[in-house]
């Protein structure tokens, strides 16, 4: 009877194996997961710290792309503009692109760099594109995702130093 009782209460080895697998998966995901954010691989994003220096040396404006992981229009911007070959080429050749990803929703706070950039450019919604000339003056700003064509028009005008209507 005692043996039956003991085997009846035995902890399932399969569940223990699953638990171990889940723990390994947790560590692997923390180590090797792709970086957070919706950055298109076609664009040569640089860090905010390097952007000003690079903009001065190349004589190009910085294109700040403010977004968040949960933001659906940001994904559309990424899919319809940043992942398109001609748009990516325009951005890579005319701007120093910086992706600024908000983590407030996920982590309850942002890094000081993200906080500083959002505050400096008074970002109150996502996505927001801000073009800043090498001398620090804001050359253009686009809030929301008004559609692929409008974004391309904005990028072309900003790259020529014009502020689109």
């Amino acid at each position: 009877m005692a043996a039956t009782e003991g085997s009846q209460r035995r902890f399932p080895a399969a569940l223990l194996g699953l638990l171990a697998l889940a723990a390994v998966f947790r560590v692997a995901a923390a180590l090797w997961a792709p970086p957070a954010g919706r950055r298109s691989a076609m664009i040569r994003w640089v860090t905010a710290g390097r952007a000003r220096d690079l903009a001065g040396r190349l004589g190009r404006p910085v294109l700040y792309d403010f977004g968040a992981d949960w933001c659906v229009p940001c994904r559309r911007l990424d899919e319809e503009v940043f992942s398109e070959t001609s748009a990516a080429a325009l951005i890579n050749e005319s701007f120093v692109p910086v992706s600024v990803v908000d983590r407030m929703e996920e982590e309850g706070r942002n890094s000081p760099v993200v906080e500083d950039l959002q505050h400096r450019f008074a970002v109150d919604g996502f996505p927001t594109l801000v073009v800043v000339r090498p001398d620090g003056a804001v050359a253009g700003r686009l809030s929301g995702f008004p559609g692929r064509d409008r974004v391309l028009e904005f990028l072309r005008a900003s790259s020529r130093g014009l502020t689109p209507p």
């Binding site: 569940l15 638990l19 889940a22 998966f25 947790r26 692997a28």
Partner: peptide
């Protein structure tokens, strides 16, 4: 391969393991 998916998998298996441990 997302940390939140991994956290979900770990929470799920941990809850089932804890249920087994307590119930046994």
């Amino acid at each position: 391969l997302d940390p939140r998916v991994a956290a979900w998998a770990l929470a799920l298996t941990a809850a089932l393991a804890a249920a087994n441990w307590t119930f046994s």
